[in-house]
Design a protein around this nucleic acid. Structure first.
Length: 473
RNA sequence: GGUCCCUUCGUCUAGUGGUUAGGACGCUGGCCUUUCACGCCGGAAACACGGGUUCGAUCCCCGUAGGGACCGCCA
């Protein structure tokens, strides 16, 4: 039997990182076993579903390179299927018409709450034998209360047992006739031949009642695996409302926002994979390794806190080994945002290579690169104050003279010039390097100084050294 | 409140009925060095608590505490 899994987001907002991980684990399992990864959009809540959210979700999956084999399917286009299933259940007596109004139900819920009882639908219409005479109704599932416990083996959590006494008759079709979630998932998963349902732990409690529906439909339930939740850095549930607060900590709920922040998709994938899944001590995985090594057995059971610092480290690590083409392509939008772009060919490659291991994100790298690509860049006031002092002026002046004389402006020649100046002035390299660094890049942190001067070019370097000289006087 | 799930360093985690409880991020001391970063070497840092089973429990069982999810004509 070939594995068929699905990712089934509801398009009521952007794809959050918990959803991204669910998608990833499904995708990994499908790829690991040569199965199919199916994308299904659960948009039956017409009030809250939007086309923008759908596009955001697809774009997020594309960015993460989680390609799907079938779909996207839309539940709103499959209504007939659900109607048919509901009709079948009605005919067989596994479902019935219910005329309880929302108001009546609210009152019962409220009373149960006041009396500190568990609210379960009391089955007022269960045996009333209502038929469709034009009075508004909903369709309820007739939950079995005789078969004892619903038992299933969860791929992550293990054996789950639920007493059928605690399963009340859920609504499958609303007053307006539209089907609800629990019915749609089951019908779709049956129809699509889904073999493994891998989803968030928040669905664990729904599973027993869905299993009842599978049975009522005469279908074999798939294997279930419920993934532990991901919590925010504060240990609390992820909240889309607290974005501003999160951002201050370098954290975002939206998967796509990590692209904006300058993360490589594979870094996020690698990080998400390690959140709740492990393969011994290994931290860094290639896409290929992930596909080869992933298994449900390696998935843990406890919720995890999102650690933005570790993601940053992983991103830097990933950038170190990324291909130049990939980096250049992903860096471009960040540079464009600052009004600059990378020169073609080797000059651009040099800049990227010199900065890839000292940047945590593409955004940070872009910031580093601006001084090489434009004359519009910021000077760090503290660095200027500390290094552009009169005492360094003679050294800088001597360097200017030496650099001006250079016919060839290569890395080797620049270094020779520096060393000659330091020796002639009886000084130390550091005394000259720091002022030059600040003069050229505006800050006290950069790649090796010979490399900086070389990458900056003769003309630009001399210009900036000259203005620095003025500053120092 | 009811039902269900979870609990190893601050965080992500490995791990076994007998280990100096391992790794990674972060923090920190040092080396390297023209700065930063990388790299390398070192350090602090965990089995939630209480019972039981056992010669022996971090590991198995039961409680307690803490955390989470669900309890909708949302998904």
């Amino acid at each position: 039997m070939t594995i068929r899994v699905r990712f089934a987001p509801s398009p009521t907002g952007y794809l959050h990182i918990g959803g991204a991980r669910t998608a990833l684990f499904n995708w990994l399992l499908a790829r690991r076993h040569g199965g199919a990864f199916i994308l299904r959009i659960e948009d039956t809540d017409r009030e809250r579903s939007t086309p923008e959210a759908i596009e955001q979700i697809l774009e997020s999956l594309r960015w993460l390179e989680l390609d799907w084999d079938e779909g996207p399917f839309f539940q709103t286009q499959r209504i007939d299927l659900y109607r048919e299933a509901i009709g079948k259940l009605l005919d067989s007596g596994m479902a019935y018409l219910c005329r309880c109004t929302p108001g009546e139900l609210d009152a019962k819920r409220e009373r149960a709450r006041r009396e500190k009882r568990t609210y379960l639908y009391d089955g007022a219409c269960r045996d009333a034998g209502h038929s469709d005479d034009g009075t508004p109704y909903v369709v309820r599932f007739r939950s079995s209360h005789t078969a004892g416990d619903v038992v299933f083996e969860d791929g992550v959590v293990g054996l789950i047992r639920k007493s059928e006494q605690e399963l009340d008759d859920l609504i499958m079709a609303r007053t307006d006739g539209t089907p609800t979630y629990n019915l749609c998932v089951v019908v779709d998963d049956v129809e699509m031949g889904i073999t493994h349902v891998i989803r968030g732990m928040d669905h664990l409690n729904n599973t027993p009642r869905q299993i009842q529906i599978y049975r009522a439909l005469g279908a074999e339930p798939p294997k279930f695996a419920h993934l532990p939740m991901i919590h925010g850095p504060d240990g609390r549930k992820l909240s889309k409302r607290r974005d501003a607060e999160y951002r201050a900590q370098g954290f975002a709920v939206s998967a796509l926002e990590y692209r904006e922040m300058g993360y490589l998709p594979h870094a996020l994938v690698n990080y998400l994979a390690r959140l709740g899944w492990a393969h011994g001590d290994q931290e860094v995985f290639s896409r290929q390794e992930l596909v080869e090594l992933f298994s449900l057995e390696g998935v843990g059971r406890s919720a995890a806190l999102f650690d933005a610092k570790k993601l940053r480290w992983l991103n830097q690590t990933t950038m170190k080994s990324a291909s130049h083409e990939d980096l250049r392509e992903r860096l471009a939008p960040h540079l464009a945002g600052k009004g600059v772009s990378l020169p073609a060919g080797e000059a651009g490659q040099r800049l990227v290579d010199a900065h890839r291991e000292r940047s945590s994100t593409l955004e940070e790298m872009a910031l580093f690169l601006v001084p090489y690509l434009s004359d519009e860049f910021e000077f760090d006031a503290k660095a200027v104050k500390k290094h552009l002092k009169p005492a360094a002026a003679p050294l800088v002046q001597a360097l200017i003279t030496k650099l001006e004389e250079l016919r060839e402006f290569g890395l080797q020649e620049v270094e020779t010039a520096f060393r000659a100046v330091v020796e002639e002035q009886g000084s130390k390299l550091g005394k000259l390097a720091q002022p030059v660094r600040v003069a050229l890049t505006g800050r006290s942190r950069s790649p090796g100084i010979f490399e900086v001067v070389w990458m900056m070019g003769k003309e630009r370097s001399l210009e900036r050294l000259q203005s620095a000289l003025v500053e120092m006087a």
